[in-house]
Simulated scan of single mutants.
Amino acid sequence: MLWFVGLGISGLEGASANAIQVLKKADMVYFENFTSPIGRTELSKIKKLVRGKMTIAPRWMVEDGKAILLLAKKKNVVLLAYGDPYVATTHLELRTRAEKDKIKTKTIHAASAITSLIGECGLHHYKIGRPVTIMRELPSLSTVYYTIYENMVKGNHSLLILEFDNSSNFFLNPKDALSSLLETENGQRRNVIDQSTFAIVASRIGSKSQKIISGKLSSLVKVDFGKPPHTIIIPGKLHFTEHDAIKIFSKCFDEPFDNSSKIQKISDQMLSKYVPKARKALEEVTKMLKDDPSLKPVIENAQLYIDDSEKFQRDGQEELAVLSIGYAEGLMDALRLSKGIDPWAQSL
């Protein structure tokens, strides 16, 4: 038997009675230590509860899984994790392998810091977009940046999980994560993150020292957030109840506001540049070729494609809008190549 047991967000004191009983009866408890740091006091309490039948399981042991599965074929084994056991994809993969190997599995779910902090910050769960992890290496920030961008386009909030490496006792500091995002903006330039962006930093959720601090990035980069773990939330469009809750539930340095209001879709950014450029080029083409009646249908079609592009954009059909402006440009490029003119020179 292989049990997947969640410890919850408050340690052993907050564990369910069922979880306590399962831990007491286990032949072996593997306590994974790579999804959240384990305090010495908490570790001591759990060791005492399971009468010493416990092994600290680093990431490689759970990912490999062979020793855990081999023992679970004969004994009553528990994989213990902070929060809910299935927040980590590694645990899901281990359960899949166990079931394929005819090892019976059972689960005891518990609150997860990832899900709990949303309500603790005063936000609505259904408005959380795709979560993403911020790593210490700067090149990886482009994925984080575009995840925030995509969430904001939809008006959703972005949940940013900070890198944690128990083997080296490393936990990414929120100030370093925010500074890296600002540096990434300098390279990407889509107006996703700047000093005025409103963010929330949730620290040690579920513990007695829980702290939630919010404000503009210019305010947050000056704060000492204390010991880990920390999670950052970049809000999208705020409901008025979320706005009010943030001010009450957190230490709020600045008035909460809608970060998504300044965001433009990539297609809109393209069209705002290409449509005026195409109109200017079409004016030049018309002037240059006005004496050739045979080219009038080509010019008229280019005009219609530009008009269609603007109509599609107004109707929210961005893909068709981009295609239409591309067709217009294609017609004018064909005239440029066949007639030896350059209408684009005046439109740059």
Rank of each mutant, 00 (worst) to 15 (best):
261 S>N: 10
38 I>E: 03
249 F>K: 15
51 R>E: 15
228 P>G: 03
277 K>D: 03
122 G>L: 07
326 G>K: 07
332 M>T: 09
232 I>W: 08
50 V>Q: 09
227 K>V: 10
180 S>C: 00
101 D>C: 00
175 K>V: 15
216 K>G: 07
213 I>G: 03
188 Q>F: 13
56 I>S: 04
250 S>W: 02
42 E>M: 13
30 Y>S: 02
339 K>I: 02
256 P>C: 06
149 Y>D: 02
108 I>T: 05
35 T>H: 09
150 E>N: 14
47 K>L: 09
121 C>A: 15
214 S>E: 01
325 I>Q: 09
41 T>G: 10
295 L>H: 05
5 V>G: 00
307 D>W: 00
157 H>R: 10
189 R>I: 08
210 Q>H: 04
73 K>P: 00
345 A>H: 11
64 D>Y: 01
167 S>N: 13
301 N>Y: 06
6 G>I: 10
253 F>K: 12
176 D>A: 12
301 N>K: 14
192 V>I: 13
150 E>W: 00
199 A>S: 12
70 L>R: 13
164 F>M: 11
347 S>A: 15
181 L>D: 01
146 Y>F: 15
298 V>E: 12
81 A>R: 07
40 R>D: 14
313 Q>H: 08
8 G>C: 05
160 L>M: 13
195 Q>D: 13
176 D>C: 00
53 K>N: 14
52 G>R: 11
48 K>C: 01
111 A>C: 07
250 S>L: 05
202 A>K: 05
227 K>L: 14
342 D>Y: 08
10 S>E: 14
195 Q>C: 06
277 K>Q: 14
112 S>A: 09
36 S>Y: 12
3 W>V: 02
68 I>S: 07
343 P>I: 06
52 G>F: 04
300 E>A: 10
5 V>M: 02
227 K>H: 07
142 S>M: 07
101 D>T: 08
